[in-house]
Design a protein around this nucleic acid. Structure first.
Length: 499
RNA sequence: GCGGGCGUAGCUCAGUGGUAGAGCGUCACGUUGCCAACGUGAAUGUCGUGAGUUCAAAUCUCAUCGCCCGCUCCA
């Protein structure tokens, strides 16, 4: 825990970062010219590069470098039955009540009973239709904030999925949902990938894309937003091998953050307690980062779950329910999923393992990362202030792979032919790296500006360049300079940047 | 949604009823030979938005929007 002073210092740090993000074009408030739109943010020129680098680093680690993972890019809108089968349509809602005495909002299923001293067991999302209709006896419940018994408002329901209409003809539209997770698109395409890609279990399908959740409350800059980007892997494996794959991905994903420069002391695992697990999950662990907001506490970047064979089996039930769906004219609330077939092991989403000569529905290990969250973590972790000759230097110590700009090229002064030489170097480098050219003002200022953008290297053409064809290469973190032959600059950068 | 704090230039902020300001940043020109240099000049504001009180509102009142902190959620 932190004392008040430390918390204020942390908050000040986040404010500094938010301010820098805006000032340097990393992240803007959405629709700002119209007063802003809550919970929505836009990535500016530097932020777009940074976020794309985060995505690419994830894809490289999870797909490109692996022999057992393939990629996918699904549409955001999917058949409504997907969400019936996944459980989101019925259960992706919270029932919340407010204590009249202290105005604290609490989920109904989290309330303790004064008579029994226990909360209801499950912490899952409730079935909104049946639950809201059911009379709730809150008379004996205790407010966790002020201890008052039985002073609650009637429960309110929150729908956590965004709805939208497909079809321009108003008389003939269908209600669809913006996906609340990318995972279901992977499960829905499991058969397609199997049939078209010659993959064999164990293998994974990865996807990066936007998801939408009508969060009750948003939080902390881009940390919790209603529109957000996920990077998810569903790794399919044979039942019985799931625990070792779970451990494997735990380690893989943790190391990914460390290798991209997150400080070890700011990253940790947090295992979910058994009673905290969703009913389908056998195990779940969060990768948490010590963000400088909230009460200075750890916040989740990524969840890694053992989802068992739940999702694939649910979708087999969903497929069997299609007739009911047609008959109900698409009203999801009027139908319930058909029971599982007795020979579900022969269903379309089951797998025949030729080596073992047996059928099974694969177990799934799911590492699910928040792209915006990790982008924020990389920003926060890279941010540094230090004093140089009495002046404050702000810099972002990005890993080279994440740095929005890899190198900047300057003429020391704007004369004696230096700009031409520098421009030639720039034109050559930009074919390979995101490069920036600047010839305005004092060179010291240009260095500092690049520090704030997190550019690892600055290349300066100076008076000596014309004599011996060398340039100064200045390193961001140490501010040290080395002379490098112009012909060697590209090789030098490639080695140093490891790109 | 409820409680607390806040909203003035790109950023940080001053301005408590009487002509909208400072520092930093940005741009131009000159100067400048390696770490936010210097000189001169310039641009930039619906004072979050709307209404009300007033001869006069950034300032007082009300509403509204947005942000931050807490409660809930969770990638």
């Amino acid at each position: 825990m932190y004392n008040r002073k430390e918390i204020m210092a942390k908050l000040a740090k986040l404010d500094d970062i938010v301010s820098l993000c805006r000032r340097r074009g990393f992240i803007f408030q959405s629709s700002e010219i119209y007063g802003g739109l809550a919970s929505c943010y836009d990535y500016g020129p530097l932020g777009a590069e940074l976020k794309r680098n985060v995505r690419n680093a994830w894809w490289k680690h999870v797909v490109q470098m692996r022999d057992d993972v393939v990629g996918l890019d699904c549409s955001i809108l999917m058949h409504p039955m997907v969400w019936k089968a996944s459980g989101h349509a019925d259960k992706f809602a919270d029932l919340v009540t407010v204590c009249k005495k202290c105005n604290t909002r609490t989920r109904v299923d989290h309330l303790q009973d004064s008579r029994e001293g226990t909360a209801e067991e499950h912490t899952e999302h409730v079935d909104i239709e049946t639950e809201a209709a059911r009379p709730h006896d809150l008379a004996g419940k205790v407010c966790p904030a002020c201890g008052t018994v039985g002073q609650f408002t009637p429960p309110m329901a929150f729908k956590l999925m965004f709805e939208t209409q497909m079809g321009a003809n108003v008389d003939d539209t269908m209600t669809l949902y913006l996906r609340p997770e990318t995972a279901q698109g992977i499960f829905a395409n499991f058969r397609n990938v199997l049939d078209s890609t010659r993959v064999k279990v164990p293998f994974g399908i990865a996807q990066i894309g936007k998801s939408f959740r009508n969060e009750v409350t948003t939080k902390a800059f881009i940390f919790r937003t209603r529109e957000f980007e996920q990077a998810e892997l569903e790794f399919f494996c044979k039942p019985g091998t799931d625990e070792q794959w779970y451990e494997h991905w735990k380690q893989q994903r943790f190391d990914w953050y460390l290798n991209l420069g997150i400080k070890k002391e700011n990253l940790r695992f947090r295992d979910h307690d058994p009673d905290e697990l969703a009913h389908y999950a056998k195990a779940c662990v969060d990768v948490e980062y010590k963000f400088p907001f909230g009460s200075g506490d750890w916040q989740e970047l990524e969840g890694i779950a053992n989802r068992t064979d739940y999702d694939l089996r649910q979708h087999q039930r969903g497929i069997r329910t299609m007739n009911d769906w047609y008959e109900s004219k698409g009203d999801l609330t009027k139908i319930s999923l058909k029971a599982e077939s007795e020979d579900y092991l022969k269903g379309p989403l089951a797998y025949f393992d030729e080596e073992a000569r047996e059928r099974y529905v694969p177990y799934v290990i799911e590492p699910s990362a928040g792209v915006d969250r990790s982008t924020l973590a990389f920003l926060v972790d890279a941010y540094d202030e230090e004093e140089v000759k009495g002046e404050q230097r702000n810099l972002l110590r990005f890993s080279p792979a994440l740095a929005p700009v890899k190198a900047a090229v300057f003429p020391l002064v704007k004369k004696d032919g230096m700009p031409d030489i520098a421009m030639n170097i720039y034109n050559d480098l930009k074919k390979q790296f995101t490069t920036f050219y600047d010839e305005k003002g004092a060179v010291g200022r240009r260095y500092r500006r690049q520090d704030e953008a997190g550019t690892p290297y600055c290349i300066t053409v100076d008076g000596q360049t014309k004599k011996d064809n060398t340039v100064t290469v200045r390193e961001r973190d140490s501010m040290e300079q080395a002379r490098v032959n112009i012909d060697q600059v590209k090789t030098f950068l490639r080695e140093k940047l490891d790109l």
